[in-house]
Structure formats: C-alpha cells, structure tokens
C-alpha cells in the first residue's frame, strides 16, 4: 500500500498555504483584501490615471453635482468643488497621500518595531527592564496626542506628520513584537534548536521569526488603520497636510464650509476614509481569526 496517499492534498501543505486556504473561506476578509489591493494600486498610479490635474480649474463648471444628478455633467463624474476642480481626480490623488503615506508609515514602523522589539525580547536583565519601563511610559499617552505633540515640536507639514505618526505608533509596536518574541523563546522547540547548537542569530531567523511573521502582519494592519485615521485627523485639524494638498482629511476640512451647498465634496472623502479603514480592519481581523483557529487545532 502506498503510504504517502494517507495524507490528503489539503493537509500536505506549508503553514502559509494553509493560512491562505482558511483566509479564502472568510468572505468579508477576502472582499476587504481586494479593496485593499485596489486602493494600494490606486495610491501608486493615481497621478497617471486621474482624468484632470489636481489644481486644474474649470471656470465653466463650479460646484457641479455628481454626474448621476440631473444637474451633473458627465465630464466630472463625481462633480466639482467651488473652484471648479474635479472631485474624482482630487480624491484619486488623495489616495496617494492618505493611503500611500500611511502604508509607508506603517511599513517603517513595522521595520523599526521588529528590530527593536526582537532586541528587547532577547535582552535580559537591566537593559530589558530599562527598555520596558520606557515603553510603558510612552504607551500611556494616546497615539494621536503623541503625534500632535511631536508636530507641535516639528511644525506642521505632511512629512512631519508621517514622522510624528511613526514615532507615535512605535511604542505599541515594539511592545507587541517583544511579547511575541518572548513568548516564542520560551517554547520547547527553541530550546531544542539551541541544543542543536544554533547561535542566537540562527534562533531568531530560523526559529522565532518564521513563526511570528503572521502576527507581525496583523500588527501591521492595526498600525495601518491607525495611521490612516491619524493622517486624516491631523490633516483635518490643519496640522498635517496643508491645502491644496489632496489629502482626504485636508479636503474634508477645506470643504467643510460647503457642506450644505455641495455635500458631495465632504461626503465622498469621508466615505473613502471609511472604506480604507474598514478594508484594512477586515483584512487584519480575518488574519487574526485564522491564526486563532490554527492555535485551536
């Protein structure tokens, strides 16, 4: 009897493909992932595919409603604002700032967080307790407040916002990664690996990191949704991106006075923000559920 047929195709796979298979069966998360991918693509290609320039004004078409409205014009699918600028083009470009920069911020945070977190995880004694207490202190300040304080020091501006968000998110990140690493290091297979003669570096790269990277992705999505909200909030408060930059929060703030006259100029960036955060959270939540299910198995 052929023994290898004892195992079915489904179970004969690496942990990563099993993860994907479970993730696929979670439909909301899958939809979230598609929206997420679409937004990411948009963030990178917006300047090239947008129909008009962001500051291109159309004197003949001020405050046009979206095209499905009876007063609308098919040239401007989502209407125009009070300066005759195309809302669609501005929103598309806004994805680059709000969504794209959030991804960059979250990526940088994750990178630094993983490096410092693993360092905190493997260090012992005085160094570890010093690092932990410092982190605990910064953790007690809300991230948005921390970002505002940092901006108050650095001065307003889009790039400063990104730095501020990175610094504000970092403590949480380091803390989570450190907990993951410590938890992993206490497991039996790590001490077995150590007995095989593995050095500290090998234990980290072969033993610890391959088993926690999914969790790091989950933390990344959480950081991303916070980053999107923070960038938009700071833009709205006029501390971040300054008009006429097409950051969604800044667009919101700029058009707030038009809310009765032209609700689409305020509503549409809000909807986009909502979709961006929702899709990120759906992906993160789906991943977390799959990981939890795997632990139960």
């Amino acid at each position: 009897m052929a023994k290898f047929s004892l195992f079915s195709e489904e179970s004969n796979r690496s942990p990563l493909s099993r993860l994907w298979r479970k993730f696929k069966s979670n439909h909301p998360a899958l939809v979230g992932l598609w929206v997420f991918v679409a937004l990411t693509l948009l963030a990178f290609t917006a300047p090239f595919i947008a129909p008009y320039g962001i500051n291109q004004q159309h004197g003949d078409a001020l405050l046009l409603p979206p095209s499905w409205h009876e007063l609308g014009d098919v040239r401007f699918i989502l209407g125009t604002d009070d300066l005759g600028r195309d809302v669609l083009s501005r929103l598309m470009n806004g994805a680059t700032f709000t969504f794209g920069l959030s991804i960059v911020a979250a990526l940088v945070t994750t990178l630094i967080g993983v490096v410092l977190g693993t360092f905190a995880g493997i260090s012992k004694g005085f160094r570890s307790s010093l690092l932990n207490h410092l982190l605990d202190i910064t953790l007690s300040i809300p991230s948005l407040l921390l970002a505002i304080i940092i901006i108050a020091v650095l001065g307003p501006g889009l790039l400063n916002t990104v730095w501020a968000i990175i610094f504000a998110l970092l403590p949480q990140h380091i803390h989570s990664v450190r907990n993951l690493v410590v938890e992993e290091l206490n497991k039996d297979y790590i001490s077995a690996f150590r007995l095989d003669g593995a050095s500290k570096w090998q234990i980290l790269t072969r033993g610890v990191l391959p088993n926690i990277y999914e969790h790091i992705v989950v933390i990344f999505t959480m950081a991303l949704s916070t980053a999107i909200l923070d960038i938009a909030a700071l833009g709205f408060l006029k501390l971040g991106a300054q008009p006429p930059t097409t950051e969604w929060g800044a667009i919101l703030a700029e058009n707030l006075s038009l809310i009765y006259l032209a609700p689409w100029t305020v509503g549409l960036p809000g909807v986009l923000l909502f979709i961006a955060v929702l899709s990120t959270n759906l992906v993160g939540d789906g991943l977390r559920q799959v990981l939890k299910g795997r632990k139960v198995d």
Partner: peptide, 25 residues
Amino acid sequence: FQDPTRSLNPGLTIGDMLDDCLSLN
C-alpha cells in the same frame, strides 16, 4: 522532550529541521 508537538518547529519541514542540525554541527 516530553511533548513532541511542542518540541518541533511548526514552521519548518522535517527535512529542513534535520538539515539545520547537521549543518550546524
């Protein structure tokens, strides 16, 4: 170890794990 489900790295194939043992020593 007492519990083999916990003393083997879940992220590596058996071959990789044994290969690590050999290449380290």
